[in-house]
């Protein structure tokens, strides 16, 4: 289809020109059923969504329902107790209820993943869009910065940053988030390079729409689909990294029952009580698995090239 010659995308009647609408359809494909409905039909994605829903409920409702449980309360007369009706998963080395710790820890571990990815998107998306849309020295500068950030293995980068910044929730979010910034820059840049050549962006530019508006109204919204996929997959990785820092005692500090630090504490009792490492590890594993399954599902649904 050729690029329309007229510089107006609206007809005199106020309706959008059908040839331009067709162009946009060529890009996005014919209107399909809503993404969420397709996602619910994707079996593995549905399984991931169910796990995430359970975790989300634990994170939100857990502290409300079990508000009388205090994770920093210790009962040294009842340490490393085996599972019982009173303590379904037993107790830890401080006599704290393992199940309660895990429920109270859900919001920290999941929150770390979500916030770290938010840092990655918050910095990576605008930089990637600028880099791809403007090109020239802006692109060169941002790309060299990306290369340098990508040069460090993400866990090593997070470890070094958290060592420099010190432990704690906010610093872990920054340390883990920085590692995902270059991935979002790369992705959004590639999308921006593609989208800026599309007829509707050319049309907008020909109409004299300013660059900022083109970026915000046309480019970024149309680049969001792959960003959502990457964000979902990155959340799994961010949880793995953040929990890894917690495992070393460099992440969120006890008595905050973050799953990684619970696992790290459990390591000291591996010979006496295997439950203390089994359950926090399973919680982390299923969280990462769920984000990966949903991310794969979203990619299948949103990326028409992979659809069969």
């Amino acid at each position: 289809m050729s690029i329309p010659e007229s510089d107006s995308i609206e007809l005199a009647t106020g309706q959008l020109r059908p040839d331009l609408l067709a162009l946009q359809e060529e890009e996005t494909g014919p209107r399909r059923e809503p993404v969420w409905r397709e996602l619910l039909r994707h079996r593995s994605a549905l399984a991931g969504l169910i796990v995430l829903a359970i975790y989300f409920l634990a994170a939100v409702l857990g502290p409300i329902v079990f508000h009388d449980y205090n994770p920093s309360y210790q009962n040294l007369n009842n340490t490393l107790a085996p599972p019982s009706l009173q303590h379904l998963l037993g107790t830890d080395n401080y006599g704290r209820d393992e199940l309660m710790d895990l429920i109270h820890g859900a919001r920290f571990t999941l929150g770390l993943g979500v916030l770290a990815v938010a840092v990655g998107i918050g910095v990576g998306l605008p930089l990637g869009a600028l880099s791809g849309y403007f090109g020239s020295w802006v692109d060169l500068l941002i790309q060299r910065l990306t290369d340098i950030l990508l040069a460090f293995p993400s866990f090593v980068l997070a470890l070094a940053l958290v060592a420099a910044l010190g432990p704690g929730l906010k610093n872990v979010v920054i340390a883990v988030g920085v590692g995902s910034i270059p991935l979002f820059i790369r992705l959004v840049r590639a999308e921006a390079l593609r989208i800026r050549e599309l007829p509707y962006v050319e049309a907008a530019r020909a109409l004299g729409v300013r660059s900022g508006r083109v970026l915000l109204r046309h480019l970024i919204p149309n680049a969001l689909a792959p960003v959502i996929v990457l964000a979902t997959l990155q959340m799994g990785l961010a949880i793995l990294t953040a929990a890894g820092l917690g495992f070393f005692g460099l992440g969120v500090q006890p008595p905050t029952p973050e799953w990684g630090s619970l696992l790290g504490q459990g390591e000291n009792y591996i010979f006496r009580d295997a439950n203390l490492i089994t359950f926090p590890g399973l919680c982390i594993f299923f969280a990462v698995l769920a984000f990966n399954l949903v991310g794969d599902g979203l990619r299948d649904v949103l990326d028409p090239r992979l659809r069969q």
Partner: peptide
Amino acid sequence: GVSMPVYWLGLM
């Protein structure tokens, strides 16, 4: 495999 925390797998 890609979802498994290596530190946990090692301990198990």
